[in-house]
């Protein structure tokens, strides 16, 4: 393992020290291990809280700020935060209007956020939850823990965050977040595994000519292993899987996220985006908005995830609303 670290046990904490140094507009509480908007709590505003294992940067702490999250709770690498952290975040951002948890659908995240919601409830803080489960590589059945939360999480955080900034109440913000999730589907391909600092070695091995199809964002193996194919075929394969699960009709608008998993150069992401844009254009779908870059990552995994969200005028208006966070900023 070669990484820019001092000690595997100190990675999350020391990265938060760096985040605090780079972004004085955020309040980084190293004791509670939470990242909070400096102006929280804001009277009349719902508190938007997300969190999850570290290693997906900029998700979630990179999306704390105006128009997006009020607080992020980073856990250990690939390990959900603990209930105490999430409760501390709720106390830091609740101004009496309640909080909304944005939770990626993983067993540990769901349990810890659920426990935190009960603790917050005991403290008189009303909690609504948006569960993100956009990864269509996993079938939602009794045979699995359900679909995973991946790329669509940042779309939910952006769009729900905009409504919260406008003064939407907790129930409305949560309902909108759920609507964005339901309109979104994602699919990911990995070219390499990733290495967690604590494990010190890759989670799996992959041959020079192989790819993992249907991976998540935790370095786990995917649904199947295949021979590497040209980018055009990969774009077609991922888009077909996405549209089969969540169709977008000709004439409809979409928000497209071409996301890197951490170690894929932008030149490849743009190449892939070009393929996807061509395919969607052929299908008559209008890409109303897009993002190309590393937003929901899996440490040093080389790979991509594609997210397509069927959009309507309200979603697009909220997407365009001002946002000022470390990793996403426009309109301000």
């Amino acid at each position: 393992m070669k990484k820019f670290i001092n000690h595997p046990d100190a990675v999350v904490r020391e990265a938060l020290v760096g985040l605090a140094a780079a972004h004085p507009e955020l309040r980084v509480d190293l004791e509670q291990q939470i990242v909070v908007r400096a102006d929280a709590p804001r009277a009349g505003k719902v508190g938007l809280i997300s969190g999850g294992g570290s290693g997906h940067e900029p998700l979630h702490a990179g999306f704390v700020g105006l128009g997006m999250l009020d607080a992020a709770c980073p856990g250990e690498v690939f390990t959900s935060p603990v209930p105490d952290q999430i409760l501390a975040a709720a106390k830091a951002v609740d101004a009496g209007s309640g909080v909304v948890h944005i939770v990626k659908n993983y067993t540990g995240d769901v349990m810890n956020f659920q426990m935190a919601a009960e603790l917050s409830g005991d403290e008189g803080i009303e909690v609504f939850t948006v569960l993100v489960d956009d990864d269509v590589a996993v079938e939602d059945s009794t045979w699995t823990a359900g679909r995973r939360g991946t790329g669509a999480t940042m779309l939910v955080e952006k769009i729900a965050g905009a409504l919260a900034e406008e003064g939407g109440d907790a129930a409305a913000v949560a309902a909108l977040g759920t609507r964005v999730n339901e309109a979104s589907a994602s699919f990911a391909i990995a070219l390499t595994p990733c290495t967690t600092p604590a494990a010190g070695r890759p989670g799996f091995e992959l041959g020079e000519d192989e790819m993992e199809v249907g991976v998540g964002i935790h370095g786990e193996p995917g649904r199947r292993r295949e021979k590497l194919r040209p980018a055009r075929d990969i774009a077609t394969m991922t888009l077909e899987a996405i549209l089969a699960a969540k169709p977008v009709a000709a004439g409809e608008d979409a928000i497209v996220l071409m996301n890197g998993l951490g170690a894929t150069p932008l030149i490849e992401l743009y190449l892939l985006y070009g393929e996807v844009a061509g395919l969607l254009e052929s299908a008559g779908v209008r890409i109303a908005r897009n993002l190309v870059g590393n937003y929901v990552t899996s440490l040093d995994m080389a790979g991509m995830s594609l997210t397509v969200c069927r959009a309507d005028p309200e979603l697009l208006r909220l997407w365009d609303a001002p946002v000022r966070t470390p990793a996403l900023r426009w309109g301000v």
Binding site: E76, V77, F78, T79, T196, A198, A199, R201, G203, F204, H218, G219, E220, P221
Partner: peptide
């Protein structure tokens, strides 16, 4: 434990249990 978890999970079970 971490080796077992790497095969079918996310390589952190030993680390988390130990902590």
């Amino acid at each position: 434990l971490t080796t077992l978890d790497a095969a079918i999970g996310d390589s952190d079970h030993g680390v988390n249990m130990n902590r």
